[in-house]
Design a protein around this nucleic acid. Structure first.
Lengths: 357, 357
DNA sequence: CTTTAGCACTCCATATCCTTGAGTGCTAAG
DNA sequence: CTTAGCACTCAAGGATATGGAGTGCTAAAG
């Protein structure tokens, strides 16, 4: 059965009001709204039908109505009005983003904090490398007696290093040989390719510095493993506590516990395919403790083949329009910031001169 | 006025009981204790005196007593019995620590989580470099056209790197010259020494690769600045909510908000001088929102001239004996783990053979 | 056929009162 | 100095009343 225009209007009003007040909405409150030229009785009839249709619920006979999960779903998909960010909001989001962010996990942490501040809700932020990488280049630096610095440059131009200290006398020349061997044999080898035969082969031809090989390859494997990993950060859990739905400490705790890094470690997977912002209303959540909370999330681009995700957790009664708007804006700004290829301090590329400053 | 032996015993019992039950302790509960061969009336007299002396408090006339801040202080300083960790406890702490920890900030995060799990309280963990370091060695690696990897080895053997991409053709030879210049001029120079004269001088003698110099020195300064910074992590805030003193949501929120990274960023400073474990009881805390919570913290050694700190936040009624024991054990284990110079996979140092396994 | 005024009814929230019991302080006897 | 005894206090919890917001239904009006 299709919803009449008026039913939609009533439903939207109920959800809007409930989002604002967190109290069951009565027919009278609806009639008070501008643009609602019906008596409370009419609204009551409409609300009664919306209830039987499953979009509204009644906590008890003589209370107002609250939206059901289906009601929220419909609201999110069709009913809610676009929320336009105010200049102040975009400004504060922008200024928040402009802070310097250096390493990926620091960045993830910062972003989580910023999103939480911008939405006044607990936020999570994650970044993960799409596929696994390989090593593009090995370098070995002799750095004093018994100290060797291993520098790995990965396919995606990420560079990692490790200081190796061995009570072992190796010469510059030995290292040259070893690095040549490594570069010949182990570059472009994915993690799965680290077979013991291959490693033995390297070992055999490594020359004087052979005893370094195990350390080097261990570290390399470790690195390849890690760069595939997701880093996740959570911020602002305590914000839940100021919302009336989480006055119940136990509930709050359960929710806060499930907003843990692990629970969301696989969320980027959930985002797979979906583009734009995704909303999970109450029971649509997998984690049982989130069954009466909602999650809003968006992905963004970090460049270098990495994927980022930001999201917030809040009561099912959250201001979806506002929150999704802020989140999308955030994601867009972040994509703009990171998505581009890195070109820092470049001494002005020869570009067609433009007038705009 | 000195406390009699019996008063101390009573006070200790009250604190112990209150820690266990979180309920005001009555005279009868005390008499029920083993080793308390006095009637409730006697205990009442003692308790009355302890109250006038300021060690105990009465929520209202007809309630039992709870320890005052002064009471806790005395308890922590003199009264509490040493808590011996059970084998299970040390085991679980050890196994928790044994997980691999790689980078400093990852480590800090992990430790916070572990401590929180071990104590069932919100935990913070911080690490900071004592003084500022200098660069021990510059290396430049040519990694394809326009890509140069800068590798800095710091005084404390920490190694950092940065990939520099410039649309610029430099040769291996150019880099050799540049790195020689850098190593000659900029090693062992503290952050304050980065004067513009010095930097100009380097720039002048840098040869073909001069345009790299600003990027390199910027990054170097940035690095020196950062390594001095403290990294802090918090974990397990939600654990507060299961404690009766934080049933009051507002209070819980205030406390959780003040267990923020920033508030504790300067805590390592508080630990300055103090060695061993430090306990801040209720009003002894600076942050006003922590005035009725307590903080227990310990520092540990990370080696490389770094200082670490772990701490927990909880109700004033926390099991100080148990918590300090666990924390100290944690700190010791961490110190053992990090404090030593790193000597991995070392093929057995020649040591006087010992029988103990 | 739709809308609306009117009214009886429901039921939660809040306030009020009462009871119960743990715990105290004091006194007087051991 | 210790302890039994007793009157007193006061928070916590249960029971009961009351007010009010909101509903559903009916019947009249548009």
């Amino acid at each position: 059965m299709e919803l009449t225009q008026r039913k939609k209007k009533v439903l939207r009003s109920v959800v809007d009001l409930y989002i604002r007040t967190a109290e069951p909405v009565g027919s009278k409150a609806i009639t008070a709204l501008p643009d609602m030229n019906y008596s409370s009785a009419t609204i009551r009839n409409e609300m009664a039908e919306l209830t039987t249709m499953g979009y509204l619920e009644q906590p008890h006979t003589s209370a107002g109505r609250i939206p059901s999960a289906a009601g929220y779903r419909l609201y999110v998909d069709e009913l809610m009005m676009d929320y336009r960010l105010s200049v102040d909001e975009t400004k504060s989001i922008n200024s928040a983003i402009e802070e310097k962010m250096q390493r990926v996990d620091k960045m993830v942490e910062k972003v989580a904090k910023l999103v939480s501040q911008a939405t006044d809700l607990p936020a999570i932020s994650a970044a993960s490398r799409a596929g696994s990488t390989t090593v593009k280049r090995f370098d070995l630096i002799l750095a004093g007696q018994g100290s060797i610095i291993l520098v790995l440059m990965l396919r995606d131009d990420q560079v990692v290093n490790k200081l190796i200290k061995l009570p072992l006398n190796v010469t510059e020349a030995d290292l040259k040989i070893l690095s040549a061997v490594l570069n010949a044999a182990m570059t472009d080898v994915p993690l799965e390719g680290f077979t013991s035969e291959l490693m033995d082969k390297v070992m055999a031809s490594a020359g004087a510095a052979a005893s370094l090989v195990p350390v080097i390859l261990d570290f390399t494997q470790e690195t390849l493993k890690n760069t595939g990993a997701t880093s996740v950060a959570v911020s602002g859990q305590a914000k839940l506590l100021s919302l009336p739905e989480y006055r119940d400490v136990d509930k709050a705790q359960r929710v806060m516990d499930s907003i843990d890094e692990e629970t969301f470690a696989n969320l980027p997977a959930v985002m797979e395919g979906a583009n734009g912002t995704k909303v999970l209303v109450g029971p649509e959540n997998v984690a049982s403790d989130l069954k009466d909370s909602s999650v809003v999330m968006t992905k963004f681009d970090i460049g270098d083949g990495m994927q980022g995700m930001i999201g917030v957790v809040g009561p099912t009664r959250m201001d979806y329009a506002k929150i999704t708007a802020r989140l999308s804006y955030f994601a867009e700004s972040l994509s703009k910031m990171f998505g581009k290829p890195e070109t820092p301090e470049q001494p002005k590329l020869p570009e067609p001169p433009k007038k705009e400053e």
